[in-house]
Design a binder for these strands. Sequence first.
DNA 1: TTGTATGCGTTATCAA
DNA 2: TTGATAACGCATACAA
Lengths: 340, 340
Amino acid sequence: MNSKRAIPTLHDVATTAGVSTATVSRCLNFPDRVSPRTKDKVLAAIEALGYSPNFGARAMAARRTNTIGAIIPTMENAIFARGLQAFQEELRLHGFTMLVASTSYKPEIEEEQIRSLVSRGADALLLIGHDRRPEIYDFLETQGVPALVTWAFDAASHRTSVGFDNQRAMQEMATEVIKLGHKKLALISAETANNDRALARRTGIYQAMEDAGLPPHDLQVVETSYGIVEGANAFGEIMGRGQKPTAVFCGNDVLAVGALRRAREMGISVPQDVSVIGFDDIELAQVAYPPLTTVHVPHREMGQKAARALSRLLLEGIPLEPTLLKTTLVYRNTLAPINF
Amino acid sequence: MNSKRAIPTLHDVATTAGVSTATVSRCLNFPDRVSPRTKDKVLAAIEALGYSPNFGARAMAARRTNTIGAIIPTMENAIFARGLQAFQEELRLHGFTMLVASTSYKPEIEEEQIRSLVSRGADALLLIGHDRRPEIYDFLETQGVPALVTWAFDAASHRTSVGFDNQRAMQEMATEVIKLGHKKLALISAETANNDRALARRTGIYQAMEDAGLPPHDLQVVETSYGIVEGANAFGEIMGRGQKPTAVFCGNDVLAVGALRRAREMGISVPQDVSVIGFDDIELAQVAYPPLTTVHVPHREMGQKAARALSRLLLEGIPLEPTLLKTTLVYRNTLAPINF
DNA sequence: TTGTATGCGTTATCAA
DNA sequence: TTGATAACGCATACAA
């Protein structure tokens, strides 16, 4: 009649099953190194008591957790969802569990989350982009926690990454847009302060303009935080000015969808009056109206390869190696030649 | 010149600072119970060594983790994002950390995740909906882990929840739709098998039809898994049949957006030819074209209240109590009277 | 204010 | 195949 039974431990299971704790432990971790008879007894005891192993104790004794942490800027939209999903699925195949944390794009929070996951015993970490204080990398090193950067690829960085070339991807798109006759360009960018992807994408446009003999300085840039509403407002701001662009690049699809929405509200036709270009090719891009012309990022492939690389490192000691993935341009209905 | 320094522990910090481990521990947990002088020494040592507390050891010694687990069906879309964000923000205020896990709407995976989070020492759990095997609740009880159900409110259930009445919400909407003259109704539903929210929403429509003297049996129901594409296909299926409805309810906004897309592709005008109704009122609903008429769910409020309830339980021992939140109907542009 | 000593639940080494 | 036992890193009751 105890109103509060204690939480069952390995020891309780051992007692109930009439064996030693070592045997119970083996039963859980190396089932074949234990006789069928004992195994049955133990499993029965586990079931009867509702035993669940204590992760902390296990981690401490085994010195590993089979857990890999993923730290992403935001869960609020689908940008990272598909890639993470693939990451998790692949990890699972190798016996690892994923732990996610988000940072709201704030470096302080990211550091906090990194420490938190390391402290929780993450065997490795998945990070987005290269941009962070060197102290963090030092910390990870002294803690012996390998980290893999994704969503970006920077040959110059000595940090290994599995990602794509943000600059080049955007540059390709911009080059096409310029070929179509667009000269007056604008960009709705995510904040570039602590975001190397956003920065690289902007640089890509500059580069394309330069290559085409257009003065990069003419690019109208509006930086804004994330969200459909923010994209809409930025678009309104740009189109409310004297010098109206004929093509508006967006740092990602979410901002682009916001832009499309505001365009509709303002009575501006896309792509007749202005072209709008996204980035990422998330599901939203297909269902936007009009369907969005954008840069396709191989999110699933990225997540999967990242998971494989990390698993192989942890399981077989195979070092991480830089992997560059290809992006492609997806033409839908929001981009038209200038002499439409 | 060691290529591999060991990970610093409390003991290392103590040695470096020339104090005992107890003092270092206090320094971390009760900074004011230690003299400024020693505190400085200790903090310096921590900094110098790059020390980070071992969560597992700490959890084991302290018998709590200040961590609350949240288990949601999916992270792939924004349905749960806003609520979770609010949940996390509020938890943070009370000193708790949120751990998220997702289940892909699969009961087996949910059970696995529940065990995993409990084993990780979660002090409490946030769950979505009531629907799960009683064994799970028993397990949580023997483990002493309180769980709070959200996204649903069932007065009949003895499990405490902070949520809204899915059936009533949908019933209200359906009643309005019927008042507008619609008699031929259809529903694109999420799979109802292990989803009490989806089930309740469907029941709500049945109820409204019955109240209005319409035979519930006439409701055309298509169940589908989650996603914009799935919603589109379901809509196509419904509109391809002989008996075309004049109003199509959707189990959530994501499915509805898919329906809108397919309608456009099929040359069907919304709401002139057919009305489309969503559920949830996520950001997507506002930017859909046409903007979606839907049921607004107070996601942020729900997350916040859930966090408060759990914090108070854990911190002050105040028991959880059932909380019913109100939903509202949001009229945008996808619903029109039948004699349009 | 500080230190000592013990225990938390598990794994893993070593014997049996 | 099994059992005894020593870590693992930390918090805390108690003593100083």
